[in-house]
Amino acid sequence: MVATMSAVEVENLSMSYKAPVRKSGLRAAFGSLVRREYKTVQALDEVSFTIAPGEVAGFIGPNGAGKTTTMKILSGILHPTSGAVQVLDTVPWQRRSAFLKRIAFVRGSQPVGGSQELTVMDSLEYQRLLYDVPRPTFRRTLADLEALLELDPLLERQLRALSLGERMRVGLAMALIYRPEVLFLDEPTIGLDVTAAGQIREFVREYVEQTGATVLLTSHYMADVESLCPRLILIDKGKVQYDGPLAELSARLSPYKLIRISTQGDPSPFGEVVDKADGQWVLRVPRDEVAGTTGRLLQALEVVDLAVEEPPLEKVIDQAYREGLR
């Protein structure tokens, strides 16, 4: 594959592995001593996509869809069964030092590796050595990260004594102290409260703005995806089901919009009533009839307030997971 203008290029990526299986019971257990049976699990099936430098893409799908497997392949931990992958024009699973210094893989489930007895500052200092960050750059980046992630009170604390939210902040600081160009974020807000999750989102947005880094983010929280990712890649059962703008997915999956209306009258003849409380109604109206319905509502009823909304992303995605894409 020749050098490209993509930060990440994935072509027909497949990953399968054999998992031992056996029926329950003693007889099957003895049988498996002689002849083990395996079942082939297809984790990824001909996945293809590219991500341009500086792009932030959301990578979503139900549990077991293949998101983390893809992330592991792209960062170099896993070796695929077939297909071609280039990240920054390098084959990731060769794990060359020069490549590893340009990427970061942060997992919400294991944000901080390494010695847990060390202080945050000791760990950052080790990262400086490991990634050959010149001291002036290290000091400058650390100052930025301190401000963005409110690290100051954490620097002298031991890793093992940090709360989950603090660990995630420190995990990001340790990953970003060497200013990676490509960032793989696997569930960065998992288990965090609303405030901590918001902080992480805000930080990622600012980091991307400042550095122009390329980001691939998986999350089950649609708030993460909505606020950070203009582009969405939806994967299910190891296949890419959708790749495009977030708004388009929403329109494709949900041919309706919601009209939220405050009125003393009865707007039920104008659309399907989804919700009704304290004089406020929510009507479901086909997308192409929204303008006409709104006009008729305003003419027929005394309207105090009216808003047209997209259906909640959670609902749209839930529908995509359960029913697939049409």
């Binding site: 592991k72 960062s75 931990i77 794990r95 590893l100 210094k101 893989f105 294991q110 590796g113 490991l130």
Partner: peptide
């Protein structure tokens, strides 16, 4: 426990 992955991704 899978933390070998952290080590594999370090440039050393």
């Amino acid at each position: 426990n899978g933390t070998l992955s952290h080590e594999l991704l370090r440039p050393q």
